[in-house]
Amino acid sequence: MQALIIIDMQQGMASPAAGQRNNPGAEQNIAALLDAWRAAGATVVHVRHMSRTPGSPFWPGQPGAEFQPRLAPLAREHVVEKNVPDCFVNSGLERWLRVRGIDDVVLVGVSTNNSVEASARSAGNLGFATRVVADACYAYAQTDYAGAPRSADDVHYMALSNLDGEYAAIVDTASTLATLRS
Rank of each mutant, 00 (worst) to 15 (best):
M1V: 04
Q2T: 13
I5V: 13
I6D: 07
I7D: 00
M9G: 00
M9F: 06
Q11V: 13
G12T: 10
G12W: 08
A17M: 08
A17P: 04
N23I: 09
Q28N: 07
I30M: 15
L33F: 00
A39T: 08
A40K: 14
H46C: 07
H46P: 05
H46N: 14
M50G: 08
T53S: 07
P54F: 01
G55I: 10
G55R: 13
P57C: 11
W59C: 03
W59N: 01
Q62W: 13
G64I: 08
G64Q: 04
P69L: 01
P73S: 07
L74W: 02
V79S: 03
E81P: 02
K82H: 14
V84E: 15
P85H: 10
D86F: 05
D86A: 08
C87M: 15
V89K: 06
V89M: 10
N90H: 11
N90M: 05
E94M: 08
R98N: 12
R100L: 12
I102P: 07
D103R: 14
D103L: 04
V110Y: 09
V110F: 12
S111F: 15
N113D: 15
E117I: 04
A118D: 12
L126E: 03
L126C: 06
L126S: 01
F128W: 00
R131T: 12
C137Q: 04
Y145Q: 04
A146M: 08
A148K: 03
P149Y: 08
R150I: 07
H156F: 10
M158V: 15
S161E: 15
N162S: 14
N162Y: 13
L163N: 09
E166M: 13
E166A: 12
A168S: 14
A168D: 06
A169K: 07
I170Q: 09
I170L: 12
V171L: 01
A174E: 15
T176I: 06
L177C: 10
L177S: 11
T179I: 08
S182W: 06
